[in-house]
Design a binder for these strands. Sequence first.
DNA 1: TTTATTCGATAAATCGATTTTTTGCAGTTG
DNA 2: CAACTGCAAAAAATCGATTTATCGAATAAA
Lengths: 357, 357
Amino acid sequence: MAQHEAQQRRPSIHDVASHAGVSAATVSKVLSGVTTVKPENAQRVFDAVELLGYRVDPLASDMRRAKRRIIGAIMPEFESEFFGQMVSELEGLAEQRGYTLVAASSRESEAREKEILARMHDWRVAGVVLAPVRNEHGPAAGFMKANGMTGVLIDRVLADDAFDTVSADSAAASAEVARALVGQGHRHILVVGLGQQAATVRARLEGFRNTALELAPDIRIDVVLSESNVEPLRTLLRDYFSKREADGDRPTAVYSLFLKGTLVALSEFRRRGWHCPNDISLVGFDDAEWMQVTWPAIAAVVQPVREIAGNAMEVLFRRIEGERGPPRARLEPCKVLMRESVGSPGNGPHSGGGDRQ
Amino acid sequence: MAQHEAQQRRPSIHDVASHAGVSAATVSKVLSGVTTVKPENAQRVFDAVELLGYRVDPLASDMRRAKRRIIGAIMPEFESEFFGQMVSELEGLAEQRGYTLVAASSRESEAREKEILARMHDWRVAGVVLAPVRNEHGPAAGFMKANGMTGVLIDRVLADDAFDTVSADSAAASAEVARALVGQGHRHILVVGLGQQAATVRARLEGFRNTALELAPDIRIDVVLSESNVEPLRTLLRDYFSKREADGDRPTAVYSLFLKGTLVALSEFRRRGWHCPNDISLVGFDDAEWMQVTWPAIAAVVQPVREIAGNAMEVLFRRIEGERGPPRARLEPCKVLMRESVGSPGNGPHSGGGDRQ
DNA sequence: TTTATTCGATAAATCGATTTTTTGCAGTTG
DNA sequence: CAACTGCAAAAAATCGATTTATCGAATAAA
């Protein structure tokens, strides 16, 4: 029940002590489960705690301890399903172990990333799950290393010499996409990506290209990469298609290396009145809930969010508990869902006009 | 530059003091901008800070102060665009004011909501932005009140007698949807919602119903509400359509009161081979990026995320700075985007089969 | 010249816990 | 009976900052 007035100051350990008729040290011992306390006194402490509605002040408590029971999570953004699910998963896993997760987003800025990290260091977090904006070689990872922080890098990383990494096996998934598209008969494919995120984009691109070339040496693979943000990509893509259409050699399939690219591609198709898969096929890296309810359903590579989160936490807590040894790089397999947006080339009218309405 | 070894313990204010040849009190004063310090000493303090790479320990610092420069944000989930954007916005606004935002999700559980709130209270956050799972009368708001916390409630709330509230004007938006659908000639409309979130769902439903009945007294409005989770809704919807189809009186339009409902509706249309808008029209509350790139583009009510976030922070900081007075309930207007998923009834084949492929 | 006043800076108290050191008491042992 | 051992609990030190009280020297007023 433990009711007390709103305006009253929070009870301290000394208040509990005097109510129970013991010293503050004894209260601390009772609450931390030390057994060398007379059961009778322990009971009186519990009663006083209950009566006053006492809660340990984590600020004071943590100042004395070396580390806090807090895990920091830094994501590049919160607006996509992928990172949203990731944070949710991590939060649940931290909670299971009696830790609190505090989440922050770097909003795709390496400067902010480092700033947040510094703050988390100030807070003495026990560990950090960092999904870097770019890759494992950014300033944030350097800061963590320089300050001896415990952490694990996820998503846009390959391998690091200081921290464990966990990410999706983009290369294998991209190879599977290549097999599927080549198998359907596609011989001219456009790959769309963001260049900034060097690590994963390169893995995805190479994984796709290598397998495609191996299966069909005569294949033509065009690449449109935007170095900076998403908006330029829209323009690049528009120009690309205009030129291809003028030359009469437009690709029969598009593979987007990230979610926003898939949206941009769809929007460009729409602008031109192209329909999947009749006019062009589409596969995107990153799945989303809506992709299976639209006409056509959009083919996508599903990243194993739960597995990545689970392994990241697993590995992180091992390090927190003091495990030594060289850092490991884990790759989790993706699932490739070939949905209706992929078909064989030349099956449709290729008219350039829509077939509806 | 301020380099120091990774394993070395963090420099304290006393380390800075001895390096600068002054007392700790002086260092504290210099760093907090007190002017009664000889410029010469101040400079030596700055130099020592630079040399040692000193940062104020927020734990120690905040223990002495009453409140910390931290804002807590609690969202029902992180996986939807709406709350993702909301957290991003709030984070930016807090940062602008020199505060740090720590985000957590209650994952649609009132118990967890209260638990997180208690933890934030322990942390002595300056204020809380709470997007409650249900409405403003849940246990979390009660906890905030009982403990004299400063906060603002957003989204699934109408008005409260203890806290300021900011939310979208669901009723007005729903009225606009009603006008649009009735205007197109629809006279039999299904409304889909989740009953739990009493406050907003009722506002949306009533706003829609009142206006629709006013414009067309003969209109038939069916309502399918799932009390608990999303999955039951799928079954309810399936049964509803089966019965309606058997009776030969199925609705010509669906208005979903929340995002997941829109997805469930689309997926049900898909299962039955119905296409929008020829076979049925669809409007959803909550917009998402993908809705404008699919065929057809999905009509949606866009909630003013930036405005809600901006006003919530505005109001919250006024309270933090000590403003008195009765709590205010703000309603921000939504934008209704009527896209291709809405048409006039009877315009399509109503065949039950798709018209493509 | 003496007494106030001002000013800059330091010592010490404080926040609320944890941890180490002391103390006091009871029961054993030589 | 003194010395020793054990054990529970209290006292005191500690974490790293802020804030208050205090102090000494320089300056102003009497």
